[in-house]
Design a protein around this nucleic acid. Structure first.
Lengths: 338, 338
DNA sequence: TCCGCCAATCTAACCGTTTCACCTGAGTCG
DNA sequence: CGACTCAGGTGAAACGGTTAGATTGGCGGA
């Protein structure tokens, strides 16, 4: 492998001059000399060593991505890949590469080490969990950090980007109210997910705005997983005054609610309307296609990446909270009440 | 940021000794000294700089991943994320991080540069295309390269891992034959995708083994995209002697075939059986759930990653072709012919 | 007692860049 | 014409590690 010294020797100039040619500065180089150097570089098939440059520049043009959930299967998660898509394109725009950290998070002392060793210029934490010290560990780093999707970041002061969860659920409620629904229930996600609380918040606000009552039994909690909404939905449908519409905490819950309704012989959307949240690809594929709240994942990922790029470049990030607007996607699981 | 010299000074030893402590060798260190050094490291919150180590070790413990398709949206592709999942977990096992190259491939001269600058120890090319010089560019690199999913690699001698496409389609045919089908058509993917040819190959072999004829009009070519199978399927169904079963080149084609059948009022699987290929998540969600050939993507990704790790560690890769076994997943789109 | 050996340690060269301080010669200006 | 500026170029010191080679002191054996 040719080094900068080889190029210098071959073109009869000093290494400094070669470096100036490579970087277009900070000193100017006579055109004739430049050509000489470029020819030598070409001739020797020379490529500057990124590690050496990184060492002196203290900059590697690489963004680190950290996943919050523990499964290694995480990259197949629709939410994560949606975010990642935005991250990739925004990173490409600004000339950053992206390195995925593969090790699971143990604790700040051991897991933060690979982040502070100069391997990347900044870190993007995607959906960090509440039950370990990841957020604190990241906040303690002297690296730029942006958090995606976590109100948890609020306490630590880390800037974050997330969809406006409350607003999304409010949109869902408003849509149902406009269709004429008055008895609307909410399937909340698990408490440990900060988004769950925000979404319920939005549900309550939407109901209050419409002047509709929310019986206690219309607020049920389930896990975010596929299938978790099945039992709760069955119970809701057996109430003496069952709801005519269901706002689910996410698409997975909505899908299992759909299953439950089908199994009870209740037709959707004629007898029961269902709205999801996230607009995962499955939402469009299922029959009937799911009305849901779209979370602009790619936009969120790109936004976070740009913020991170700014921070790396020394541009201060003005505010801490960045909220992307959700969007109502009307498909076929909502209709006027019977 | 503390450096190794700070640690040396703080613990009253030389930098060499500190280095020996960090790396457990290559020289031994007295237990007492080691403790002294470790204490100083802890005290100063010292973390060895990865770039500096990489510079002298010529090893960064990082794998580069290159995507073949051009869209930046690539990471949302189910196939790619499936592979990536395997890559991530296998990389984690062996202590590698993964960097995703974000720039699109232009040509070998410009696009290969970032790969040979020491940023990663080896490269994984996922589904490289046939219509540019990516493969040649990679083959010309003096880096270990493993190709995922590309018979194209064959010519260049690069080792590759892929599902056994022909075998998969053969399984599909055998399944249909066992159900009693005799008139089976094949929706081939686009020619430029090497997998398409292999799958058709397997189809023909399977039909030959069963002693069944394949009329020319039963072999149709479409693009791999969602929706592309719609028109061809309609045409097949309008034949005087229409097929009773359809083997699709991938799930996307199968799904659009399903749509076409539904729109023609032909019930699946009672009047028409359909088999997909890939087992993307959509396959299980659609109604009726799709019988398909599962491609073990995570396994393929992990396999490729281990091969790459071996090559990086200097273990020679014995053979060039590595074929993962496909698996028939029977759901609800196949049944005996009418 | 002397020698050789060995473990533990240190000194310094090196990895491949960038950039600062310095030098030279030509042009500019009063 | 001398003092400046300035563009173009050089040498060498960083950057933060690793490791070969030299050095030291302690110990066992002849």
């Amino acid at each position: 492998m040719a080094t900068i010294r080889d190029v210098a020797r071959a073109s009869g100039v000093s290494v400094a001059t070669v470096s100036y040619v490579i970087n277009n500065g900070p000193r100017s180089v006579r055109e004739e000399t430049r050509r000489l150097v470029l020819a030598a570089m070409e001739e020797l098939d020379y490529h500057p060593n990124a590690m050496a440059r990184a060492l002196v520049n203290r900059r590697v043009n690489t963004l680190g991505v950290l996943f919050g959930r523990v499964e290694p299967a995480i990259v197949t998660n629709q939410y994560v890949t949606g975010i990642l898509e935005g991250v990739m394109s925004a990173a490409a725009e600004r000339g950053f590469n992206v390195t995925l950290f593969t090790q699971r998070w143990k604790d700040a002392a051991t897991s933060a080490a690979p982040l502070r060793d100069g391997r990347c210029d900044g870190v993007l934490a995607i959906a960090p969990p509440t039950d370990n010290d990841m957020i604190e560990g990241l906040a303690g780093l002297d690296l730029p950090v942006i958090v995606v999707s976590a109100a948890i970041a609020a306490e630590t002061g880390l800037p974050f980007v997330d969809v406006d969860n409350a607003e999304g659920t409010r949109l869902a409620v408003r849509h149902l109210v406009e269709l004429g629904h008055r008895r609307i229930a909410h399937l909340t996600g698990e408490e440990s997910q900060p988004s769950a609380g925000e979404r319920r918040e939005g549900f309550l606000r939407g109901m209050a705005e419409a002047g509709l009552p929310v019986p206690a039994e219309f607020l049920v909690t389930a896990r975010y997983n596929l299938g978790a909404g099945y039992e709760p939905t069955l119970r809701l449908l057996q109430l003496p005054q069952p709801p005519t519409a269901l706002v689910a905490g996410n698409d997975a819950l909505a899908l299992s609610a759909l299953d439950a309704a089908r199994d009870r012989g209740i037709s959707v959307p004629e007898q029961l309307s269902i709205v999801g949240f996230d607009d995962t690809p499955a939402a469009a594929l299922v029959t009937p296609p799911l009305t849901t709240i779209r979370q602009p994942m790619a936009r969120i990922g790109a936004w976070a990446t740009r913020l991170l790029g700014d921070r790396i470049d020394g541009v201060p990030v003005a505010q801490q909270a960045h909220r992307a607007s959700p969007e109502l996607v009307i498909r076929a699981t909502t209709a006027p009440p019977p």
